[in-house]
Amino acid sequence: MFSELLHTKERQNETYKQLHVVLGQSCSCELQLAGPQYDNLQCISSLYPSVSEELFRCELSDNVFRTQALSPDMTQLKKASVTIDNSLSPGHTLVQICCVDHKGFLYDIMRTLKDCNIQIAYGRFSSVNKGLRELDLFIRQKDGKKIVDPDKRDALCSRLKVEMLHPLRVIITNRGTDTELLVANPVELDGKGRPRVFYDVTLALKTLGICIFSAEIGRHCTSDREWEFYRFLLDEDCRFDMSSMVGRNQIVDKVRRTLMGW
């Protein structure tokens, strides 16, 4: 909502004040509307194919050596369950979801169902119990019918599990001799990106004492969806050894936890 008001003088002045508070009176900045040349930005041309494949793949491997592998204390995430039942309602399919609670839990599920052209008639979710969240949804297809095709049911369950396990992708790679943090998340069909990603990533890096040399935001299209893509060039003058896998995993883990609210 606030980004839509940046063209107003009042909102621009408020933004200037916030920047001066953080950066000091020496800060000099200017706000202007982005032109059409910035539509559908593609900022991934320099990514290695292997990095691009890992960042934007639909399904993620459980291989512990992958840079997006979960830390040991989060293995309970893999216990997420999605079940579908057509016997309880004559006109709707019941989807029951149980998984570890995270920031944007409902957003990720609603976005996924919208992308799959699924309509929601009724929903009920529980309060958090031992870190777990349960959700019941009565749904139907766009044509108003239940989901009876086994392949469609399996595809929907698989898609929901992936979105609950990895709604955001976070990896660290090299850009030449420098270290780069990459974050990606699916874009909604109407073109809207996930809220607060840039804020949460910069907050996590600030908490770790890591300075950002440069930051870029763009869009990338794969065969089945569009992604919002963030790349941060990190200042290596910090307490983490970015040449070691241990140091890099600590950074990735902190950023992911901040994004997910853990």
Score class of each variant (00 low, 15 high):
residue 153 R to E: 01
residue 241 D to M: 01
residue 191 G to V: 00
residue 116 C to H: 07
residue 160 L to K: 01
residue 147 I to Q: 08
residue 174 N to V: 02
residue 224 D to M: 06
residue 52 S to N: 14
residue 196 R to N: 11
residue 178 D to P: 04
residue 231 R to P: 02
residue 109 I to W: 00
residue 222 T to W: 10
residue 182 L to Y: 11
residue 76 Q to K: 12
residue 239 R to T: 03
residue 18 Q to T: 06
residue 211 C to S: 10
residue 131 G to I: 00
residue 232 F to Q: 00
residue 68 Q to D: 08
residue 243 S to W: 03
residue 183 V to N: 01
residue 183 V to Y: 05
residue 14 E to A: 15
residue 62 D to A: 14
residue 188 E to W: 02
residue 260 M to L: 15
residue 156 L to H: 05
residue 79 K to S: 14
residue 56 F to R: 01
residue 75 T to D: 10
residue 49 P to N: 07
residue 126 S to K: 06
residue 160 L to I: 15
residue 167 P to S: 04
residue 119 Q to R: 10
residue 259 L to T: 01
residue 229 F to Y: 15
residue 219 R to N: 10
residue 158 S to D: 04
residue 30 E to Y: 14
residue 16 Y to H: 10
residue 155 A to W: 09
residue 61 S to Q: 05
residue 215 A to I: 14
residue 66 R to Y: 05
residue 29 C to E: 05
residue 151 D to M: 13
residue 229 F to G: 00
residue 3 S to A: 13
residue 243 S to T: 15
residue 142 K to V: 00
residue 254 K to V: 05
residue 145 K to T: 04
residue 51 V to N: 07
residue 196 R to I: 02
residue 6 L to V: 12
residue 70 L to C: 07
residue 214 S to I: 06
residue 225 R to N: 07
residue 47 L to I: 02
residue 217 I to S: 07
residue 95 V to L: 07
residue 213 F to A: 13
residue 140 R to P: 04
residue 124 R to I: 10
residue 132 L to F: 14
residue 70 L to N: 06
residue 112 T to P: 02
residue 223 S to Q: 12
residue 159 R to M: 15
residue 161 K to E: 01
residue 252 V to L: 08
residue 203 L to R: 02
residue 79 K to N: 14
residue 234 L to W: 02
residue 133 R to A: 12
residue 107 Y to V: 08
residue 196 R to V: 11
residue 159 R to E: 11
residue 58 C to N: 08
residue 162 V to H: 09
residue 52 S to W: 05
residue 195 P to Y: 08
residue 69 A to Q: 06
residue 88 L to R: 06
residue 242 M to C: 08
residue 166 H to I: 04
residue 239 R to V: 00
residue 159 R to K: 11
residue 102 H to S: 10
residue 145 K to N: 13
residue 106 L to D: 06
residue 62 D to Q: 02
residue 51 V to T: 15
residue 2 F to W: 09
residue 138 F to P: 03
residue 198 F to V: 14
residue 242 M to N: 11
residue 174 N to W: 03
residue 2 F to R: 05
residue 29 C to H: 09
residue 213 F to Y: 10
residue 262 W to P: 01
residue 129 N to Y: 09
residue 262 W to V: 00
residue 100 V to K: 11
residue 105 F to C: 07
residue 46 S to D: 15
residue 147 I to P: 05
residue 9 K to W: 09
residue 122 Y to V: 07
residue 36 P to E: 03
residue 230 Y to N: 01
residue 102 H to W: 04
residue 145 K to A: 13
residue 175 R to S: 12
residue 207 T to S: 12
residue 142 K to Q: 12
residue 61 S to W: 09
residue 48 Y to D: 15
residue 42 Q to V: 13
residue 94 L to W: 11
residue 82 V to M: 03
residue 186 P to S: 04
residue 261 G to N: 05
residue 175 R to Y: 10
residue 160 L to Q: 01
residue 92 H to Y: 15
residue 176 G to I: 01
residue 139 I to M: 03
residue 251 I to T: 10
residue 65 F to D: 10
residue 106 L to M: 11
residue 51 V to C: 08
residue 232 F to A: 00
residue 140 R to C: 14
residue 128 V to K: 08
residue 174 N to M: 01
residue 29 C to F: 15
residue 125 F to V: 09
residue 146 K to A: 11
residue 14 E to T: 12
residue 93 T to A: 13
residue 145 K to L: 15
residue 2 F to Y: 12
residue 221 C to L: 13
residue 89 S to W: 11
residue 85 D to Q: 05
residue 22 V to A: 14
residue 184 A to D: 00
residue 247 G to F: 05
residue 250 Q to R: 11
residue 87 S to T: 14
